[in-house]
Amino acid sequence: MGLAELLGTYGQNYLDGLLATWSMSAVSFVFVMVLAVLVTVARVSPVAPLRGLGELYVQVFRNIPGVALLILVAYALPQLRVVLPWRTCVIVTVVLLGSAFGSENFMSGINTIGVGQIEAARSIGLTFTQILRHIVIPQALRTTVLPMTNLLIAVMLSTALGSQVPMTPQELTGVVSYVNTRATGGILAFLISALGYALTAIAISFLGNRLDKRVRVLR
């Protein structure tokens, strides 16, 4: 099958796949960021057990293969009577993985904030939560735009895990499997999806660079 024929027959599937990849990436990334902030707050909190829990979270989810985690979420959780829709299973998996990496990015962002600023904040009477809210989190966010841009790309690519479960609509990689089971698209069927990923990644890094220049903290 040639390119024109593939797109003629399955164009709509690819388009739906691209939209599914985009929407899953967006939803996942929002939760990734929220969870990454929460986990990082736990890791820097004055409460030792909370710090331990935060570290454990990162160590577990940073070091587990995506497919293995997906299998646990999709096929082990139902044993505990937690049955999630397929799409949600994929998003949960991606969020757990992504937030562990996101928290590592945040930690490096926090490490760029001098201890002096924290002492100054304490000296004017700010409490731990006020310091987090006004000093630590804003600066950590603004100094980690570029690593978070990379993370968003990684999150998008991880949504390809969706090809391993029977989701509808399928995302870009799932579409390839679908196409190749009914036609002989071969490598070309993959390349169409690859182009979708690549163009999205380029757009993300372009926007990430622009955002970084706007919000970067001058030192």
Partner: peptide, 14 residues
């Protein structure tokens, strides 16, 4: 209620 001024100024950079 106590002011503190540091050697390194320590203004909030952002």
């Amino acid at each position: 209620e106590l002011g503190m001024v540091f050697q390194q100024f320590n203004l909030f950079a952002h």
